[in-house]
């Protein structure tokens, strides 16, 4: 390694990805180039006849996938949550996955889709934010951060089209505006600000239904945390790729709050008690005939 000094006319500035490209002659999306993945990815729809037959020739059966993630705004900021299951095709590949990641003091990223590239993207994103902050002496704005992540998602488009889709949710606390922000993304890198809540991944649709029913503008921390857990439990009830809270092993959803005092992961004890009180409530509802499930 040599000291990365560039001439003023060729300086990558505070852009970490550009620095990486100059240092390693590689660029985000390097998963594809020279990594062996280009031989694996065949047709644009992710079908490759040279794959083992048990995979049904589908790339997605070989790759670890993360599933349901969500975010919702509440009175003090924003909550981000995700289940813990990763799948390979119809198999459970991992029970401990952490799909919610702190990217800097005031923001977090949740990931759904192909786990390998998603985790790499999160690492790159968090390095980029820290790099910018150190080089420039100030942090990027919340909008600037969302835009950066959008560019990374777009860089990944070619692989997304071949079955390695990565869909993040970005959530942050905007110190200037004094409120929580949620952004969702599409494969082309488009980023969209969400005023209330968002859910992505295979169980995202079900989670969203729960959020839609019970979310309101003045929701406080405890109610919002309970709602996040309920949405994940509902998603796990309908979607095989979403893992329910695993009380046997003590594996609970990853939940974090982001407020004016920064990112705060909710510890396992609190999530466990949230899960148990939800189960109690569901039990009561069933007994009183207020609601049918669980049967």
């Amino acid at each position: 390694m040599s000291l990365p000094i560039f001439s003023p006319t060729d300086d990558p500035g505070p852009n970490f990805m550009a620095t990486l490209a100059r240092t390693y002659q590689r660029y985000p999306g390097w998963y594809l180039r020279g990594s062996g993945m280009e031989t694996m990815v065949g047709e644009p729809d992710g079908i490759n006849s040279s794959l083992p037959s048990w995979t049904g020739n589908r790339i997605s059966d070989l790759i670890r996938h993360g599933t349901t993630i969500l975010a919702l705004r509440y009175r003090d900021g924003v909550i981000v949550a995700g289940d813990r299951r990763a799948t390979e095709g119809h198999l459970i590949a991992y029970r401990n996955m952490e799909k919610v990641m702190r990217v800097d003091q005031y923001s977090a990223m949740a990931i759904a889709g192909a786990a390998g590239p998603a985790v790499e993207m999160a690492r790159l994103f968090s390095t980029q934010l820290e790099h910018y902050e150190k080089v420039e002496g100030v942090s990027l704005s919340t909008e600037g951060k969302a835009n950066q992540l959008g560019q990374m998602v777009r860089e990944h488009l070619a692989l997304a089209m071949r079955g390695m889709l990565v869909i993040p949710i970005f959530a942050g606390y905007d110190l200037q505006a004094g409120n929580g922000r949620i952004y969702t993304f599409d494969v082309t890198g488009g980023h969209y600000i969400e005023g209330e809540h968002a859910a992505e991944g295979s169980g995202g649709r079900n989670a969203r239904s729960v959020l839609k029913q019970f979310w309101h503008a003045e929701i406080d921390r405890d109610a919002a945390l309970a709602l996040a857990i309920e949405a994940l439990v509902e998603a796990a009830d309908e979607d095989i790729a979403t893992g329910p809270p695993d009380t046997l092993r003590g594996i609970y959803p990853i939940v974090a709050t982001i407020t004016s005092s920064g990112y705060q992961a909710i510890d396992d004890d609190e999530t466990a008690s949230l899960v148990h009180s939800l189960y109690d409530r569901l039990q009561t509802r069933t007994e009183t005939g207020e609601r049918r499930w669980p049967r």
Partner: peptide, 16 residues
């Protein structure tokens, strides 16, 4: 310029 080069070196190394 040396300061920025140091940050670049450290971040690249930490990332790799």
């Amino acid at each position: 310029q040396l300061r920025v080069a140091g940050i670049r070196h450290a971040d690249t190394k930490g990332f790799a």
